[in-house]
Design a protein around this nucleic acid. Structure first.
Length: 557
RNA sequence: AGCCCGAUAGUAUAAUGGUAGUACGACGGUUUUUGGUACCGUUUGUCUUGGUUCGAAUCCAGGUCGGGCUACCA
């Protein structure tokens, strides 16, 4: 946390409240997900904001499930949301549910009716829509708008008692049919739904609408700063109207711009489609922008928090470049992950002057970024090695620093080798590379005086273990799939997942069976052991590649 | 159409009436037993037209562009 960073607009508001003694210097925020889907990176922004603000100003944050619509909500989502918030590193003060307040909310509605500020309407949904008018023309009163308080009280109670079918009646606030704000034209505040609720069961058959539940829930909890996204700005007058007319604790709503990121989609509806239509393998597919997907991909909580810190908080629409997220995870993993060697696309190399049957155990530091290397592991070295196919070129260009006829290169943590020969099969594919090594060029003990520019990774053939490796690319081919013509799913990248069923890995990688452990496969990228792994069948997911300036060089031609 | 919100390099984000800065990206270089990391450098910006002011990214007015709202979703 940099002390010098300037305040965002919400911090300014809070500091002003603190300075003026509003709420006696108390700060209480809340994170209010609806349990109808998995959390994604956009929610992470909101989580970091709400919990971060509270932490910064010695306040607290409630986790409140906004569960007012029983037909879309489920405990499966409650559990995943709790797990994701915890995984991100945040602790809520209280775990609450809007459904905890259904009794109180019902009483609030009764209060409004008694004040002549709400009425039961028998109009159909189409009729109500028509009554709303349009932005240029005022709405027209429902024929039921002038029902007496007594009648409204009776009908509302009957609604609660289940005397009516779904949609037969609603409770509407009586506000202003001519308001330029459509939300103020007698909004529906209670509707009938004979549906089983994941927490209250069958106790209720009427449920409050968002606008009649959210502000009051904030107020009941005495939330000081209720932070939501921009699309709720037009709801704010209604939020305030409810609180004022109910004469309850004056929580205040503030809005910030939601996160958008390129090469992905960020709406629960679209993510649900990708899951349901099998474009991905579930909500936690490593290509998904969900928290659980990012976790499976190998992202760390710290990297996501850092990302949220860097993107800032503002009110303008934005589309963040995914390269910033990738920067954050590389920055974290570079400092924390152990280096290991894995050959993903193998070709055999034979060291012709290395004694047959000889094995040397070479030492390799775990992480050069850490003082002392963060310990080390032993690497078996022998006459036959697997190396990466792309590290050999039959006709290498001038600036190619790896292997080719007559070229020398360093084997990481081992010796310098020089390529003398190679073998091709009938169809012209290179199948084997023959090299000689310089015995006095051993890493850490090099007296050969040979200077090479390149270093490549390798795995000893007789000692190699195998693993499945999943290489991920961005899920979409275009920057903003949601804004393209046609169905966004047409823009799914068909190469977003490439499975290598048998890669060769150094033995140390197999010694320590530990799903979710993250490694850097030297020169190939950061990888995480997937939860599908068993000790007999290891699976690694590529989190992100290393920056590759050679690839750029090649691209330029 | 009416109302609401917004507009600073490619993308984000500062500058709160006083030198337009930072990060990511891109480009170039130094170092390097990872073509990684680290370090150095280069590039590109205040939507527009007026006004207020000694001085405007900032304040005011008009325009333009982008987004939102007109669900018995949240």
């Amino acid at each position: 946390m940099s002390e010098e960073r300037s305040l965002n607009f919400l911090e300014e508001i809070i500091e002003k409240d603190l300075a003026e003694g509003t709420h006696d210097g108390r700060v209480l925020t809340r994170f209010p997900p609806e349990p109808n889907g998995y959390l994604h990176i956009g929610h992470a922004k909101s989580i970091c904001l709400n919990f971060g603000l509270a932490k910064k100003y010695n306040g607290k944050t409630n986790l409140r499930f906004d569960d007012t619509n029983p037909v879309t909500e489920d405990t499966e989502y409650v559990e995943s949301i709790k797990e994701d918030v915890k995984w991100l590193g945040f602790n809520w003060a209280e775990e609450l549910y809007t459904s905890d307040y259904f009794d109180k909310l019902y009483e609030f509605a009764v209060t409004l009716i008694k004040k002549g500020l709400a009425y039961v309407d028998d109009s159909t949904s189409e009729e109500i829509a028509a009554q709303k008018g349009n932005p240029t023309e005022p709405g027209t009163p429902s024929p039921y708008r002038s029902r007496s308080v007594e009648e409204n009280l009776r009908l509302f109670e009957e609604m609660k008692e289940g005397k009516y079918r779904d949609g037969e009646k609603v409770l509407r606030a009586k506000i202003d049919l001519a308001s330029p704000n459509m939300h103020m034209r007698d909004p529906i505040i209670y509707r009938i739904k004979h549906a089983h609720h994941h927490r209250t069961g069958d106790k209720w058959c009427i449920y409050p609408m968002y606008d009649f539940a959210h502000g009051q829930s904030d107020s009941i909890e005495e939330i000081t700063h209720s932070i939501c996204t921009l699309e709720f700005i037009p709801h704010r007058p209604l939020y305030n109207w409810c609180i004022e007319n109910l004469e309850i604790f004056p929580s205040k709503q503030y809005e910030f711009a939601r996160l958008n990121m390129n090469y992905t989609v960020m709406s629960k509806r679209k993510l649900l489609q990708l899951v349901n239509e099998n474009y991905v393998n579930g909500w936690d597919d490593a290509r998904m922008p969900t928290i659980s997907g990012l976790r499976r991909r190998g992202y760390t909580p710290a990297s996501i928090r850092e990302f949220c810190e860097r993107i800032g908080i503002q009110k303008r629409e934005n589309i963040i470049d995914v390269s910033l997220l990738e920067f954050c995870i590389r920055e974290d993993l570079n400092k924390t992950s152990w280096r290991r060697m894995a050959v993903l696309d193998p070709i055999k190399m034979v060291i012709t002057n290395y004694p047959e049957g000889q094995v040397e155990m070479l030492e390799g530091e775990n992480n050069p970024e850490v003082e002392g290397g963060d310990g080390s592991r032993l690497l078996p070295f022998s006459k036959e090695l697997w190396i990466e196919r792309e590290d050999f070129m039959e006709n290498p260009p001038k600036k190619f620093f790896r292997l080719g006829p007559g070229l020398s290169t360093r084997l990481k943590h081992a010796y310098i080798v020089t390529c003398n020969d190679f073998v091709k099969d009938e169809s012209g594919n290179v199948t084997e590379i023959h090299c000689t090594y310089a015995p006095n060029s051993k890493s850490g003990n090099d007296t050969s005086g040979i200077m090479v520019k390149g270093t490549i990774h390798w795995v000893s053939v007789p000692h190699a273990k195998t693993a499945e490796v999943r290489l991920y690319e961005r899920l979409f081919k275009v920057e903003n799939p949601a804004s393209e013509e046609g169905d966004f799913k047409e823009y799914v990248n068909p190469d977003s997942l490439q499975v290598i069923s048998q890669a060769f890995i150094e033995p140390a990688l197999a010694d320590d069976f530990n799903p979710e452990h993250r490694f850097q496969f030297i020169r190939k990228g950061y990888f995480v052991m997937d939860k599908d792994s068993t000790p007999e069948h290891l699976v690694f997911n590529r989190t992100v590649t290393l920056k590759d300036s050679w690839a750029k060089e090649v691209k330029k031609g």
